[in-house]
Design a protein around this nucleic acid. Structure first.
Lengths: 125, 125
DNA sequence: GGAGAAAATGAAAATGATTGTCAAAAAAGA
DNA sequence: TCTTTTTTGACAATCATTTTCATTTTCTCC
């Protein structure tokens, strides 16, 4: 468990929203850390491989990460302005995805579900 | 309606799966077309802007496109081996997404839902 | 049909996120 | 402490996508 990985994990934990590697790197440098960009990428890679953080892709293909509270399978309600996210669950969706996959003869069925919108705070502004 | 855009549209229509710009470009060149890569990108951009084709991102961030039969809102069941896709609908999911968004005070709620798996043909092989 | 304006095209350069390389620095073991 | 292993980070390399810009094609009006 390297120090750097821990640094990145904490930077992520301190945020409620999804953050990009570049973004986190800029923040860490801004607050005085001498961490390198490569290391930030490696830490995020390791953290997502181990399932400690969730990853998703923005519309323009950039990978963004989040340290979620729940260890279990869940989805997100993400603000498209400030990227704040709420962890959500949808048992019905899980079942539906599995069924529709099986119905068409697919095996090893998984799914991605993300809900986007403008959060209450951003809606006011 | 330019000729080139029509060329790209047809190339897409001839495929049941999601295709990347690079991929389509290679195919078109292989079959003798003198089209340029830039034009393929521009055509796909225009087609997706007008809603004529659907776009999604692969795990590694590459944009892939598909000419779907349905003009209406729908989702996809995509084979992760051959990328063949089946258009699917899930009224329950639509409702759930809208509700969960509203419950947390989000406005302008949209969602992305994709189901992945290995299709019957690829499962055999 | 032809001249000129506007839109489309494509080659090549630029961009930007992400990954690979490799030598130096830090941590772990003995 | 000395050696081995792991981690780190500067820099270069990749690769999809976008920009730029000059050329070609299409449109439009005469």
């Amino acid at each position: 468990m390297s120090t750097r990985r821990e640094t990145v994990r904490q930077a992520l934990t301190g945020s409620t929203g999804f953050r990009s590697a570049q973004d986190l790197y800029a923040d860490l440098r801004a607050e005085g850390s001498k961490i390198g960009l490569t290391t930030v990428y490696r830490a995020l890679q390791a953290l997502s491989d181990s399932g400690e953080v969730d990853v998703l892709r923005t519309d323009d293909g950039e990978a963004v990460y989040r340290a979620c509270d729940s260890e279990q399978h869940h989805h997100h309600l993400v603000c498209r302005k400030c990227s704040t996210a709420v962890e959500i669950e949808g048992p019905a969706v899980e079942k539906w995805a599995a069924e529709v996959g099986a119905k068409h003869g697919f095996t090893g069925v998984t799914h991605t579900v993300e809900v986007f919108g403008t959060c209450g705070d951003c809606s006011k502004a």
